[in-house]
């Protein structure tokens, strides 16, 4: 009796605000462009090679794993590309090709896919990749050694390494003097040595603000992370200015800014409720400076991120009571 016209039947709601995962990821990549382009200008074609290889190999690992695990292909959503890109941004321009490929393998397969793919990874995949690389092939990750053949026209030493060195040898160096040898403006404008996409502070900040305004990352995490870094650094500096660097220095060197806008904000490994986001960001900022100042490593980002990732599920239990919930 019914006229045979096939209608689409599905469940409410029948509208959607049009957001999608791809959009999110491609905007993250767009926001990273200023920092990457600057890195390429600074380090030349080698940097193009590293970034491109990182992105493409990450996508290929994702595809390979999708096929091997017989899961639907997910390289189109841009998430693997973002992981590869962020990893590439943290590497020195001189990273050999195999290092990049191993790094993206670890990031995509061990950091993300084995947990079930997008949304299920407890750790930031790019940081997992970086952690393994720096543990296993630390010398390729040593910016001073890696970039020794470059002539930049500015002090070509990795600032954090220098400060670590100085603070370990207080009889020879005064950290304050070492820090003062870097001008804040220079650091902001990228006149420093570091990862390809991690040196151009201003570019990263602009990209980050863009992402925040568009709502692609959560401002609470970025902001509390920065506040965490600044406050902790301030305390250390106040306790002994000859041994600890000033907050601005911590903010503008190493992976700090990259972490604030591109790493800490990774969706899957970060909390979504307001107070947990603040705790997560602030905790990560604090850990970063703690590790830098009293730990063994020059940069504390890797372990700060991993530690806070572990704490994330617990933190995210702090949430407002649902309305109508008894007890």
């Amino acid at each position: 009796m019914f006229v045979d016209k096939k209608l689409i039947v599905s469940h409410a709601p029948f509208w959607h605000n049009g957001s999608c995962i791809g959009e999110r990821n491609y905007h993250i990549m767009l926001a990273a462009l200023p920092a990457i382009i600057f890195g390429i200008m600074q380090y030349g074609s080698a940097a193009i090679g590293v970034i491109s290889l990182a992105i493409s190999s990450a996508m290929l690992w994702e595809l390979a794993f999708n096929r091997a695990a017989k899961r639907p292909d997910s390289i189109g959503d841009g998430s693997a590309a973002v992981v590869g890109m962020v990893l590439g941004m943290m590497l020195p321009a001189t990273a050999p090709w195999w290092l990049v490929i191993v790094g993206t393998f670890v990031a995509i397969v061990i950091g993300k896919q084995v947990y079930g793919g997008i949304g299920a990874n407890p750790f930031n995949p790019a940081i997992v990749g970086l952690a393994i690389l720096s543990l296993s092939w630390g010398k390729f990750m040593d910016f001073d050694a890696a970039l020794v053949n470059y002539d930049f026209g500015f002090t070509a030493v990795y600032p954090l390494q220098l400060v670590k060195h100085a603070s370990k040898n207080p009889e020879i160096f005064n950290v304050a003097d070492v820090v003062n040898s870097f001008k804040i403006m220079d650091l902001l404008m990228g006149k420093q040595v570091g990862g390809i996409g991690a040196v151009f502070g201003l570019g990263i900040i602009v990209g980050g603000i863009y992402l925040i305004i568009r709502g692609f990352i959560r401002w609470e995490i970025s902001l509390s992370f920065i506040v965490g870094v600044i406050l902790t650094a301030l305390l250390f500096q106040a306790s002994d200015p000859t041994r600890y660097a000033c907050p601005m220095f911590h903010l503008l060197t190493g992976y700090t800014l990259l972490a604030a806008f591109f790493i800490a904000t990774e969706d899957s490994s970060s909390p979504v409720n307001f107070i947990p986001m603040l705790l997560y960001g602030a905790g990560m900022g604090m850990m970063t400076v703690l590790i830098r100042n009293i730990g063994a490593y020059a940069d504390g980002i890797i372990y700060a991120v991993l530690i806070m990732n572990v704490a994330n599920p617990l933190l995210d239990k702090i949430r407002p009571k649902a309305i109508g919930k008894a007890v």
Binding site: S10, F14, S268, R319, K321
Partner: peptide, 28 residues
């Protein structure tokens, strides 16, 4: 119209938190 029909996907949750922020009842 068929061009306005919004479809769902079989993607998993990426934990972006949009839903948590918009839910009027504070449901996680």
């Amino acid at each position: 119209g068929s061009e306005d029909v919004s479809l769902v996907s079989d993607y998993p949750c990426i934990n972006c938190g949009e839903c948590v922020r918009i839910c009027p009842m504070n449901i996680p």
